[in-house]
Each structure stands twice: as C-alpha cells, then as structure tokens.
Amino acid sequence: MRITRYAATFAAFGVVLAGCSSEAGNEVEDAAQETQDVAEDVQFDEGTTMAELAESGEITIGTKFDQPGFGLLNPNTEAPEGFDVEIAELIAAELGIAPESINWVETVSANREPFIQNGQVDMVVATYTINDKRKEVVDFAGPYYEAGQDIMVAAGNPEGIEGPEDLAGQKVCSVEGSTPAQNIRDNFPEAELITYDVYSKCADDLANGNVQAVTTDNVILTGLVAGSPDEFELVGNPFTEEPYGIGLEKGDEEFRSFINDVLEESFENGEWAAAWDRTAGAITGEEAPEPPSVDRY
C-alpha cells in the first residue's frame, strides 16, 4: 500500500517535470519538421560503408548534446537539434535513412576519436575542428562550416577589448584542454589564462567580474550570449579559422567522398543555408554565411 503511494507521488512529480518543457523547444521542434526528403531506392557499390548503412536502414551518429544552435538535446523528443544535427540528417537522407532511424550518441570533445576508432559511431558531426593531429587517427569529410575563435566580454565592453592583443594583462577564461585555450597559451602568453571544465563557469566568472573576457569558438560564445544578452556581448572579430568537419573511420575513402559529394550538393541547392537559418541562424539572427569549400585531401 505504502509502495503504491510512493510510486504515485513519483509519477505525479514526473508529470510536473515533463510539463516544464520550454516553449522555445516546441518552436524548434516545429521548425525541424520541415527537413529534406529521404532518398528512396539508393544504390551503392557492394562492400562500401554506404551500402552497409543503406542495407541496415539505420546509422549511429555522434553529436554534441549541449551546444545551442549546433547540437542541443531537446528533452521533449529526446533527440538533439541544431545545425550539426541537420547536416547529419542530410547525409543520412542521401543514404535512404529517415531522421527517426538515426541513433544519436552524445560525443564530447574528449571522446570523439575513441568513439570513431572503436566503431561505436558511424560518423561524428559535433563542432569537430579538423586538424593534423586528429587526422592521424580519424578522417574528416568537409569542412561544412568555418568557425573562428572570438572573445566574449561584459556588456558595454568596459575594458575596450577589440581583439586578442587587447587581452594582455587581462584575465581571460576558457575550457581546459580546448584548442582555443591552447592558442591563447601559445600565441598570447601576456594574457592571464584561467581554465574551467565547462564554459558556463567562465560565464559565471565573467558575470561576477573575476575575469574580463571569455574566449572560444564564436558559435559557443553565441550560445552563451543568447542565454544572457543583457550581461554579455560578443567582440565579433574572429582571429582563427576552425573548419568543422565530419569525423569518420580512418581510411574509408569512399564514405568520405560520398559525404563530401552530399555536402557540396547541399551548398549548391540551398539546403545547407536553409539548415543554417533553421538552427544557428535563428539564434544569432544572422544570415547564412558563404559555405566553405570542401577539402578532398
């Protein structure tokens, strides 16, 4: 008797929690309905990754679950949403796989290479910067987007920070182990770098004045500014080039050129720009940039 009463209490609590889902989430969900058509009767050469995936009818894709505009988990649908997700769905569609048949796996910066190497995911679309070290263990299709390191400051920019040179003598925050943090360490040693494990702590420190700036890829900062537009602003002067690529198993040349073909097609037929407008563009209010050119190395 008592057990059932407890169970009822928990169930009621769960209903309340489920009811707390945001309006914004629903809007994004509606927008996500207008995705591209799934290809039918796809044909691929025997033995290729594409043939295997098309045959099985499903694909496992790693993306971020915590990156507004690129890959953010929607608690209602339990599926991620964002620009990376749309790009991944585009590719899956060309394999004849509907968005519902995609198994999403959360990948964070530290586990992307192992997940690809161990075959836990078929590909990774997760704000994944292409670089030579990573190319030694995985291959990259794309880039499909060119991000850049930028700086976020307190609203009104009290220190007058316009670029990385102005960080000298200032306390600047980033995340330990990230490429932007390493860039500050290597190229702007005059700046006093403080590294947390997540960007939200950097934002806290910027809000309470313990640091004067936060630096990382502009897409991440955009998400933070969108969260508290009264407190933060973006300097808007990217000083690095971070080409985002799609990570896949090393040596799978056919799969890589297939993805590159899909990306180039989407650049031309406007699907790429439409995906941007639905996701990251909806947060920043900026128009879709020029698509980057695919690097077929």
Binding site: S109, A110, E113, K133, R134, E136, E176, G177, T179, Q182
Partner: peptide, 9 residues
C-alpha cells in the same frame, strides 16, 4: 584534459 585533447594520437 589538456594533453588528451592536444594529443589525440
């Protein structure tokens, strides 16, 4: 964290 990200290999 720092070394693992810089030295993926």
């Amino acid at each position: 964290q720092r070394l693992a990200n810089v030295n993926a290999d």
